[in-house]
Nucleic acid binder design. Structure first.
Lengths: 237, 237
DNA sequence: AAGTGGTCTAGACCACCAG
DNA sequence: TGGTGGTCTAGACCACTTT
């Protein structure tokens, strides 16, 4: 006799959605059926339909938003395991480091920051903006958001002496760090901070760095580097 | 007024378990409370306790087995060796790789190329231009210059099958690789090759890669990536 | 007001593993 | 046989967004 394998229903629903995405019939941005839709059309409880959508969300195939729906996500190419040399550390080793503190205070999380740092909108966060100088010339603009519950004294430190990143690594050892790299056109404010005088010219490299401790995001750093200032170290094979 | 934030119960359970793991009171291999145990002790339904355990399983903190229980997992050991893996290799692993050969011929070094490759002006070099495709969509534009004395058959290879970079690593093992990163505005030709025309204006990440063998430069690659396509993997400290 | 996703409950049946 | 995790149900309340 043929052994019929029992396939979980949530998997059938996942495959149904995946097929539509893979075949292109649901292009990026398409709204997929809601939990209730799927529950009805697959004759399944909402919790089961929900599981299918949630796992597709976790896997990056969907973006979901309360009150709006679930949408086909834009595929992202991942390149694992790249080390970015720390520009600031580099300058410090050369003995030319100094820091300009643009701001350092307590703020309330907007939607983007809240999502990225896994906190609620309007939660209190620390925010610091620094310009790292190499021989008194701006080398990097840093915008850092810190979860106060994990580093309550963050805002009281003297960042003329200690770099914010080093302080955080000390008080709340991250067990995980994520990097994301992109190229951007700096805003007028960013250009001013970096003293990029050439009008409108010059894209920058943006590095987004997220430190985790257990399940919590300790900090989110947004580093803006002028286009030509970022050199990666030599690597031996 | 003090806003009390509603914390989901499954999160409290997760944190409870994480704290025991992080503090060392539940070492690797320890059996953690079962779904039913947690449901009772936290006065919660089994589905809620289950969620906490399942997420910790997904995140690699626990190993679970039907009939046996949930156990503290051994911390994931990541390679301490840092590697810059290129986008192309990644796409190949996904089985979605293809390549469009824009040009492949013999040229004479201009001043910039000659200086960068440590050869004389007007020396003969091989030059290839490729568009690396991920599921038939451009993911990276590669411009590669090769020293013919170190890879004389470079120009005769079939790059539909073998990536130029892989071929070079095979015929002339580089003992040293340098990377340089910058942000650029793509030229009209580059935008066309990457099919960025519909996305309007946008900066790109440029990676310049130089392979050395002994004191000679084997190759110089200039890789252009659309601004948002480059995500870096997580890294354990 | 209607619809969406986020959380949660109090049950249920199953396959699996242990003593 | 009793406990474990894996799947599933048919409800529920909430915060949120859109209409």
């Amino acid at each position: 006799m043929s052994d019929t394998v029992k396939i979980p229903r949530f998997l059938l629903i996942k495959q149904y959605i995946e097929n539509h995405i893979a075949s292109g019939s649901w292009p990026v941005g398409t709204r997929v059926p809601s939990e209730n839709d799927l529950a009805v059309s697959f004759s399944v409880s909402r919790m089961t339909a929900r599981r299918a959508l949630k796992e597709l969300d976790d896997q990056g195939f969907l973006n979901r938003a309360p009150g709006r729906g679930s949408f086909v996500a834009k595929p992202q190419v991942r390149a694992p395991h790249i080390e970015l040399r720390n520009v600031v550390q580099n300058i410090q080793n050369l003995g030319r480091y100094s820091c300009r503190i643009v701001s350092l205070d307590s703020i309330h999380a907007d939607m983007f920051i809240a999502k990225t740092m896994r906190v609620n909108v309007d939660d209190e966060l620390y925010k610091g903006v620094f310009v790292h100088l190499d021989a008194n010339k701006p080398a990097q603009l840093e915008e850092i958001y810190v979860n106060p519950s994990l580093a309550p004294a963050f805002i009281k430190q003297n960042y003329q002496k200690v770099v914010a990143d080093a302080y955080l690594n000390w008080v709340a050892q991250p067990n995980h760090t994520e990097y994301q790299l992109s190229a951007i056109m700096p805003s007028a404010a960013q250009r001013r901070q970096l003293e990029l005088t050439h009008e409108g010219e010059g894209p920058c490299i943006k590095i987004t760095k997220r430190h985790w401790a257990q399940e919590l995001v300790i900090s989110l750093s947004i580093l803006i580097n002028p286009s030509d200032s970022y050199h990666l170290g030599a690597e031996i094979t």
